[in-house]
């Protein structure tokens, strides 16, 4: 089916489909990361779930995500430096 449509001259279905799949995969990766971060940062930031999310807790969650990404970045860079020194 796919083969047939893409074989029509000037019809870019293959490319469109590839793009669509790529975007969907990106969305899935984003979703999976958010899932992981929420679990990790929930454990760090939420002591006892109250009637609403406190400003303090919200700030903690945001900072948790940002500092985790900073740490990852730092580690990758440092590993790279260590590798270069060898």
């Amino acid at each position: 089916m796919e083969q047939q449509i893409s074989s029509i001259p000037g019809y870019d279905t293959d490319k469109e489909l590839q793009q669509f799949v790529e975007i969907e995969q990106q969305k899935a990766r984003f979703h999976a990361q958010v899932h992981k971060f929420t679990e990790m940062c929930w454990d760090k930031c939420i002591d006892k779930p109250g009637n609403r999310l406190e400003a303090k807790e919200e700030a903690c969650l945001t900072q948790c995500v940002e500092r985790f990404l900073d740490s990852t970045h730092f580690i990758v860079n440092r590993l790279d430096e260590i590798r270069k020194q060898q």
């Binding site: 958010v34 929420t38 779930p49 945001t62």
Partner: peptide, 24 residues
């Protein structure tokens, strides 16, 4: 408690999602 926790968890999910999207 579980009901409250679910609500807070979903809110947290949104906060984390926003923070990550902003960062990207």
């Amino acid at each position: 408690c579980v009901a409250k926790c679910m609500d807070r968890y979903m809110e947290s999910w949104n906060v984390v999602s926003r923070a990550y999207a902003n960062r990207i």
